[in-house]
Design a protein around this nucleic acid. Structure first.
Lengths: 169, 169
DNA sequence: TTTGCAAATGATAATCATTCTCATTAAATT
DNA sequence: AATTTAATGAGAATGATTATCATTTGCAAA
């Protein structure tokens, strides 16, 4: 993957339901990966959970529990929505999915990527750019060290106006 | 305020209801500040709103709407809780307060500080350390520039184990 | 200062995401 | 295959947040 002088890796451009241009990193996940995720949480592998994880992976990122439930139902009419909620909660507890909450909106979930990335969101159009930046993470480690903390994870969300919204207004 | 070699300013230590040691930056706010906040949002200055802002300032940081409502009621029995919710929402919209949501918990609010800071939270005991780091912010600007975004604000939350939790377990 | 009016307030109802309950079913281990 | 324990599904319960609406109030213009 290309890298620029600032150490930023650019995400690939994936198609998306909305008209907003959105840059996402793509990743491969196998059924074996999903089974390992479930077992690592000390949970049982069930067809429901496999379907839920597959839907999480195949559909748009940052999906709500309700949206995910609807996708899942198309594959198996009999899966209840309590199952989806419950499993998402378990996954979030074990950091297998990342939960993002904005305002009073329902929570949105995405499979925690193998390669960590952060988000930059356009507050005008909602376009999301994923990025990686080693320097920022090194400085985070320094902060933690300074206070004697052992870092486990972080959330970094940048907000601003994207190029196209700066132009069109 | 002292600064160390990593450019990190340490927060001062303030008393707090819980037994957890928590480092917070302290700030002065006057009634004039509060009136300016309200006017900047194109809202009218009312006694209710002044009381709400004063309570937000004087009480523990990261307060829930419900907790804030209870504090406010002690000062004026007649203030409804819809007023508290509504005003908090308005303040959050205008970035005058910062809204933090974790899990399914109710949202927590704090007056957006004059001097921006970020948070590092201990996942074991909930201790919160506030910090400032210029380097991280400079790198954030580089990321934004890289993608042509004009940054407006950001959320950075570090999570880890604090020194005392590392020792006691 | 008084008046007019848009905005704010307070009480309550409505909404809606999320969590819980419990009877039933299924995974995994021996 | 039997046993044990967790998972599931349906629906009810919870609880934070938001909307409604009649009444009151800030405040600017006269």
């Amino acid at each position: 993957m290309q890298k620029n002088k600032n150490g930023i890796e650019k995400g690939v451009l994936l198609p998306r339901p909305s008209s907003n241009e959105t840059q996402f990193f793509d990743e491969e996940w196998s059924d074996e990966d999903f089974k390992n995720i479930i077992r690592k949480l000390n949970l049982k592998v069930t067809p429901q959970r496999m379907i839920i994880l597959n839907c999480l992976h195949k559909n748009r990122k940052h999906i709500t529990a309700q949206e995910l439930f609807e996708k899942v139902q198309k594959l198996n009419e009999d899966i209840g929505f309590a199952t989806v909620y419950r499993f998402l909660k378990d996954l979030a507890l074990g950091h297998a999915v990342t939960e993002v909450r904005m305002g009073g909106m329902p929570a949105r979930y995405e499979l925690t990527p193998k390669k960590h990335h952060d988000h930059m969101t356009c507050t005008e159009c909602g376009r999301i750019v994923e990025f990686q930046n080693k320097s920022i993470e090194q400085h985070q480690e320094k902060v933690a060290e300074q206070f004697g903390f052992k870092l486990t994870h972080h959330v970094l969300e940048l907000y601003g106006i994207c190029p196209s919204c700066q132009t069109h207004e």
